[in-house]
Write a protein that binds this DNA or RNA. Structure first.
Lengths: 339, 339
DNA sequence: CCGTCGGGATGAAACGATTCAGATCGTGGG
DNA sequence: CCCACGATCTGAATCGTTTCATCCCGACGG
C-alpha cells in the first residue's frame, strides 16, 4: 500500500476515464452495464475509498454536522447525542460530538474547529445566557440549531423544553405533598436552564405560604449534589424537601442524606430533573421531571438536515418546544406506589 | 456573506500573493513585518477561516482522530473519551466520537466513515472478540490503537486493563468475605472483557470449595442488571453474592434486590466493575473494580499521536496494560467502613 | 444515403490550500 | 563596479474529486 488508491488508479485499472469512475459512484444509472461492472471490480480490487476532503472541496458541502454539548458526563446529553446521531445517519450525515464542559473558551475552540472543517451545520447547547456561541456562528454563516435553549427572535431553529413549566411541575408536586420549606439545589446558576427551573418553582410557590431556599452549587454533577446536601443538613429549620436542578445533583443529595441517616422521603423528599436512567435505578428511585432527550436530539438533527439539505432555501426557522413531564417515584411519596 | 472568503480574497485584499498569505499563516517568521500585519488585518477583516478540507487534500494528513466506543451510555466510556479528547487537544488534534453500541454493522459503518474522512488514526474499542474491525483497519492502512483490549501480536498499539486480574480481585474479595455461592452477571458474553473477568473469577475460586453461577444477560446496562437480579432472586439456594461484569449491571441488580426487600450486603453482597461515578453515589455505595478510564483514553490518544506525528516512522508498537484496583464500599462490607 | 438522436464515455476546468523553484531587491565584500 | 547573498515575495503545479461541454457511434426515420 503506497498511499491509498485514487480515482485515477481505478480508472487506469478499469480502462476508463476518471469521469466514468465518478459516474459509477455517483450516478450509476448513466453508465453502461459492462463498464459499471468493470469499474466496480477495480474499486473492489484496489480497495479504493473515496477521499471525502476532495469531494468536499469540489462540491462545497460537508457530510458531517458538529454537536457541542454542555456535559458529556451527564447522561441526559448522552441520550440527546444518541438521538441526534440516529437522525443524522438517517440523513446520510455523520456527527462530531464535542464537550464544551460549560467552558466558554472550550466552546469557542470547538466552534472554530467546526468552522475549519466546514461542517454542514452545528447543533449547539450554549454555555452562556448571552449566546456568544450563537453569535459567532451567525457571524461565520454556519447554519445551526440551538438545543435545550429557546432561540430568541427568529435567528435560528431551536429545540427546547419549557423549563419554567418543568420547575413549576416539580415545586407544585412538592407543595401538594405538603412541603412548605423547599430547597433549590442550583441556586442562581448562570445557565439559563437552571434559572428558568428556579423561576418556575418560584411561580408555583407564589402566594402559597411556602418558601424556596437557594442552595448554590459550583457544578451540576454528583459531587456538587453531595456538597449541597451536606449544607442542606446544616440548615435550621431543615427544609423538608429539595428540588434539584438536575438528576446528578439529586443523586448526590440522596447520597448525602443516606450518609447522615436520613430517610428519603420521610425526612427529606427529593425531586430531580431530566429523568436520566440512573434516576429510576437509584436505590430510592427518584421523582424527576422528564425531558425527552432523544427526541430533542433527533428533532434538532432533522431540522438541521432540512435547513442544509436540498430545498433548504425554502427553510423557515422554527422553534420546537417540548413539554416536560413529572415522573413520580419513591423519593417523594411516603406511601409506596403500586409497582 | 456570499460564501466564505478564500485565501485568494485575502491575498487580493492585502495586495500580496496567495503564497505569502499561506506563509503568514504557517510560517510567519519568513514574512516581513509590514506584510505580515497587512495580511493579518485582511484576514481579520474578511473573517477568513482556513478550509481544512483543502489543506488536508494538499498536505495529505488530517487533524482529526476517530474514537469508536462500545457504549456511550456507559460512563466508563465517557470518561475514556474525555481523556482521549484531552490528550488529542494537547497534540492539536480533534476527536470524532462515535458509538458502535456493540453492533458489528455499526462498527463497520463508522470505520468506513473514518476511512472516507481520512482521519489521522482511530482509537477502537472492538465490538467482537475476533477483531474484524481491527482487520479492516489494517487492510485499509489506517493507524489505530486498540483500547480496552490487548492487541494480539505486534500488529498495533493497545491500551488495556488486566481483566483476568480484575475478575480475580473481585472474586477473591467475596471469597475472603466468606461467600461460597457467587453469581456472575455477564455469563458467557461474547465481549472479551466479560469473558476475561469471568475467567479471573473462576481462577480465584478454583480449589476453594466455592462455585460461580452464570447469569446470562442480553445487554450490559441497568435494565439487564435488573433482569439478572430478578432471576438471581429465584435461584435456590440463593447465591449470597454477585459479581457483575460492570457497574451498570450492578446498579440494576442493586435495584432488584431493594425491590424484593433484600438488604445489601447482609442478604446479598454485590461487586461491580469499572468504578464509575454512580457506583460511589449509589445509596448503597458499590464495591467495584476500578479501571483508570481517563488515563486509558489519554494514553491511547498519546500513542496514536506519537505514531502518526512527525518521527512516526521510528514508532514501535507498544502494549500498555493497566492494573485494576479493588475499591471496597458498603455493598460488600457488613461492618460499615470508616468514613 | 443523410441527418438526427441519444446513450455512453471522455477530458479538462475548478475547488482552496501548500509548496517550491525562481524572481526581485538591497547590501556588503572584493 | 560587479557579484554573491539573504531576505522577501511571486506564481504555478499539485492534491482527488465532481461536473459539464463534447465527442463517438450505432440506430432510425425520411
Amino acid at each position: 500500500m503506497g498511499g491509498a488508491a485514487s480515482i485515477k488508479d481505478v480508472a487506469r485499472a478499469a480502462g476508463v476515464s476518471v469521469g466514468t469512475v465518478s459516474n459509477v459512484i455517483n450516478r450509476p444509472e448513466t453508465v453502461g452495464e459492462g463498464t459499471r461492472a468493470r469499474v466496480r471490480a477495480a474499486i473492489e480490487q484496489l480497495g479504493y475509498v473515496r477521499d471525502e476532503s476532495a469531494r468536499q472541496l469540489r462540491s462545497g458541502s460537508s457530510r458531517i454536522i458538529g454537536l457541542l454539548v454542555l456535559d458529556l458526563g451527564n447522561p441526559f446529553f448522552v441520550s440527546l447525542a444518541r438521538g441526534a446521531e440516529q437522525a443524522a445517519r438517517a440523513a446520510g450525515l455523520g456527527v462530531m460530538v464535542c464537550n464544551s464542559a460549560q467552558q466558554l473558551a472550550d466552546e469557542a475552540d470547538y466552534l472554530a474547529l467546526f468552522a475549519e472543517q466546514r461542517v454542514r451545520g452545528v447543533l449547539l447547547t450554549p454555555a452562556d445566557a448571552e449566546g456568544s456561541g450563537a453569535a459567532a456562528l451567525r457571524r461565520s454563516g454556519v447554519p445551526f440549531v440551538l438545543v435545550d435553549r429557546l432561540a430568541a427572535g427568529l435567528e435560528a431553529c431551536s429545540v427546547s423544553v419549557d423549563d419554567v413549566g418543568g420547575g413549576a411541575l416539580a415545586a407544585g408536586h412538592l407543595l401538594e405533598s405538603g412541603h412548605r420549606r423547599i430547597a433549590f439545589a442550583g441556586g442562581r446558576h448562570r445557565l439559563q436552564q437552571v434559572a428558568d427551573r428556579r423561576r418556575g418553582a418560584l411561580q408555583a410557590l407564589a402566594g402559597r405560604d411556602a418558601v424556596l431556599l437557594d442552595l448554590e452549587v459550583d457544578g451540576l454533577d454528583v459531587a456538587a449534589g453531595r456538597d449541597a446536601g451536606a449544607r442542606l443538613l446544616g440548615m435550621s429549620p431543615r427544609p423538608t424537601a429539595a428540588f434539584c436542578a438536575n438528576d446528578l445533583l439529586a443523586l448526590g443529595m440522596l447520597q448525602a442524606a443516606f450518609a447522615a441517616g436520613l430517610r428519603v422521603p420521610e425526612d427529606l423528599a427529593i425531586v430531580g430533573y431530566d429523568d436520566i436512567e440512573f434516576a429510576a435505578a437509584a436505590a430510592v428511585p427518584l421523582t424527576s421531571v422528564r425531558q425527552p432527550a432523544e427526541a430533542m436530539g433527533r428533532t434538532a438533527a432533522e431540522m438541521l438536515a432540512e435547513e442544509t439539505g436540498p430545498g433548504g432555501a425554502a427553510h423557515r426557522h422554527r422553534q420546537v418546544v417540548f413539554e416536560p413531564e413529572l415522573v413520580v417515584r419513591r423519593s417523594t411519596s411516603v406511601v409506596p406506589l403500586p409497582g
